[in-house]
Design a protein around this nucleic acid. Structure first.
Lengths: 95, 95
DNA sequence: TAAATTAGTTTATATTATAAACTAATTTAT
DNA sequence: ATAAATTAGTTTATAATATAAACTAATTTA
């Protein structure tokens, strides 16, 4: 009965959790789409996406949509596993 | 469909959430009991309990057990409501 | 061609979490 | 008796985090 196992600090953050929650059920998602859905500021989102990418939880690819920059995010296998482990751990804190 | 409603920052913290999770199913709990169950350091626990008390989520009473100080914590009605609202909001982030 | 918008990034600041250091008393060992 | 260790915490300093504000660079619209 190992109560309260540690929660992955990378996922125990409102914005990063929302991002992962979106990405887990989508093939991929654009920066602006994630920004709208999460109501985050662009600056905050940019920083948090970087952290998720550096952890290997998502991959970020940069291209162009017409002439404007386009940032696309996709959850990785590592990210899926981390998210699932986080959810399992978190549930032990809930009724 | 108001996805991703904000998570009460007072509860979206590993240690404070663990404390509330314990207290919600107990009449009350001693400082040392909470410390053991959560594996927190005394200093960190002391600070986080203060925050929960200042928010009105728990009440803290100080007395003596024999000759040693005894700190006892109890969740309040406000705390129960906040915890329940947090859980409801959090679930929208989970699969 | 000036102003506004889009799509972001970088940087500075405020907040938070945490550990280390400390207080104050008690118990145990010498 | 007294020194060392333990208990039960609090206070304070520091490290980590989240967030917003300021910025870049280009595009579109008036």
């Amino acid at each position: 009965m190992d109560n309260f196992e540690p929660l992955d600090p990378l996922l125990h953050s409102q914005l990063r959790l929302a991002v992962m929650s979106l990405l887990i059920s989508l093939e991929d998602a654009e920066f602006t789409f994630i920004k709208e859905k999460t109501q985050a500021t662009a600056g905050n989102l940019s920083v948090q996406l970087d952290k998720l990418e550096q952890a290997g939880y998502i991959s970020i690819s940069k291209s162009f949509k017409g002439k404007r920059p386009l940032t696309t995010c996709k959850i990785t296998t590592t990210g899926i596993k981390a998210f699932e482990a986080y959810v399992t751990a978190l549930k032990k804190y809930l009724p």
